[in-house]
Structure formats: structure tokens, C-alpha cells
């Protein structure tokens, strides 16, 4: 292999540290049963945080629900965002600005306003208090991010590569697998991770639309502030699925089909 230049390695180290340092601090906090302020390290180590984290028994269910909802919302957002981003990215629309603003609207309106109205409509439509309802609720938050990220990947460049594939005798399926997906893979991966993260951390809509269905942020948020140790313990667990999502997609992006 070629020796990686110093800069790349320094960059890798910096990224690694940026990830590891907050995690390390969380890790110490999570196991600190006694930690009075001026001390650099805790006086007592223990598992109180984790015991409290799993105290209710709903924590495992909450993480499971959140993973299902995040995967569902992300998959749906990719399916809907893909054509939208293609049409926008290839500038095939006469008024892309209008579509763009419409898509970004959920990001511009304060979440409180959308949240209350959303709950009301979900109740009327009788899709409230279910995982399916949660997927749709999260979709409204996830979709704009996914489209905005996909937009960066879809452009005339991809169309040009696809045209090349067509003239070289690639069938539509092969074109998708050999040309389109690999050339947008990094963007697709970024959109997937971002979509997953946005869904994963939805507090307001999870509570309002879920009607009490256990979800990961609902378990974690109440502890932030009042109980730093339990919050840290839950946070350690909380970051695992997003990190897994990151690793899986990063791998998928770097070794395409």
C-alpha cells in the first residue's frame, strides 16, 4: 500500500479524538458513583447509572422501537427523497426554488409549531400512538435533511455517467448497481446516517405522536440535568446505534458493489 501522507494521518487522528474524547468523558461520568466537583477523577466507581438506566425495563424496548422507527423513516425518506433530489439536482424543474423551500419548510418552522399541529392531524387520521405513526411523524423531520444531502450527490455528473452506462450496453438494473449507486454512494451514506440520526434524536414528535410508546430519547432526556450519571450511562448506550449506522454506511460507501 501507498504510505498515507502525514496530513491525512493527522486528520484521521483529529477525527478520532473528536469522537473519542467526548465518549471518554461520558464513560467516566457514567461509572462515577461519587464525583465531587474539584476532583479530576471520581472518588467512587460503580454501576448506579446503568442500574437506573435499565431500572424501568422499558429501556431495551425503547431502543428497539427507536431503531425500527429510525430505519423505517430513513428508508422511506430515501425512497421519496431520491426522485425529488434527482429532479431538483438535474435542474429539470422550472421553479426549483419553490420545491426547495417546500421541502425545507419543516426545518424553517419552529418544531413546536409543527409538533402540535402534527399531533392533531395524526389523531384525526387515526395513525396516532403506533410505530407506523411514529415513522410518518419522523419522516416529516427526516425528509428535508435527506433531500438536501442527496441534492449534493445528484447532479448532471451522475446523469452523464448513467448516459455513458447506457451507451456501453448496461441494462437499467446494472446501470443502477454499477454506475448510479456507486457514484452517489458517499452521498447516499451521508443521507442515511443523517436521516437515522435525525429520527433517532426526535424527542417532541416521539412523545406527542407516540402517545407513550417507549422511545430512546424519551428515556434519556428526563435524566439530562437532574441526574448526570444516569444520563451519561444512557448516553453511552444512546450513541451506539448511530455509531453503528455510521460505520456500516461508511463501509458501504467506501467499498461499493
Amino acid at each position: 500500500m501507498v504510505r498515507r501522507p502525514l496530513l491525512a494521518r493527522a486528520g484521521g487522528l483529529a477525527i478520532g479524538l473528536a469522537f473519542a474524547l467526548p465518549l471518554a468523558i461520558l464513560g467516566v461520568r457514567a461509572f462515577a458513583d461519587t464525583w465531587r466537583a474539584p476532583a479530576l477523577v471520581p472518588q467512587d466507581w460503580g454501576l448506579r447509572g446503568f442500574e437506573a438506566a435499565f431500572g424501568g425495563g422499558a429501556t431495551v424496548e425503547a431502543f428497539g422501537n427507536s431503531i425500527v422507527v429510525a430505519l423505517g423513516a430513513t428508508a422511506l425518506a430515501l425512497a421519496l427523497g431520491w426522485p425529488a433530489a434527482r429532479v431538483l439536482g438535474e435542474r429539470r424543474l422550472r421553479r426549483p426554488g419553490v420545491v426547495f423551500v417546500a421541502l425545507a419548510m419543516p426545518l424553517l418552522v419552529p418544531p413546536y409549531a409543527t409538533g402540535a399541529g402534527l399531533t392533531e392531524w395524526f389523531i384525526r387520521l387515526r395513525i396516532i400512538d403506533s410505530l407506523g405513526g411514529l415513522v410518518l411523524a419522523h419522516l416529516t423531520a427526516v425528509l428535508p435533511y435527506v433531500v438536501l444531502v442527496l441534492l449534493a450527490g445528484f447532479g448532471t455528473k451522475v446523469t452523464e455517467l448513467e448516459d455513458m452506462g447506457r451507451t456501453l450496453g448496461l441494462s437499467p438494473a446494472r446501470r443502477l448497481a454499477w454506475v448510479t449507486l456507486p457514484s452517489v454512494a458517499p452521498t447516499l451514506a451521508a443521507a442515511t446516517v443523517l436521516g437515522f440520526l435525525v429520527s433517532w434524536s426526535q424527542y417532541g414528535s416521539s412523545l406527542a405522536v407516540g402517545g407513550g410508546l417507549p422511545m430512546a430519547p424519551l428515556v434519556l432526556f428526563p435524566f439530562i440535568g437532574p441526574d448526570p450519571q444516569t444520563a451519561a450511562a444512557l448516553s453511552l448506550l444512546y450513541v451506539i446505534p448511530p455509531i453503528l449506522a455510521l460505520l456500516v454506511t461508511a463501509r458501504a460507501a467506501s467499498s461499493p458493489l
Partner: peptide
Amino acid sequence: VPVGDTADAVQRVIAQRRA
């Protein structure tokens, strides 16, 4: 149902009423 802010629970009841 753990909430970070009790107002969230009241909000939900209000949304039901409005719907």
C-alpha cells in the same frame, strides 16, 4: 411514560381535544 417536561403531557391532551 417518562417526560422531560410535564407541559408535554398537557400539550398532548390539548392536541387530542383540538382534534
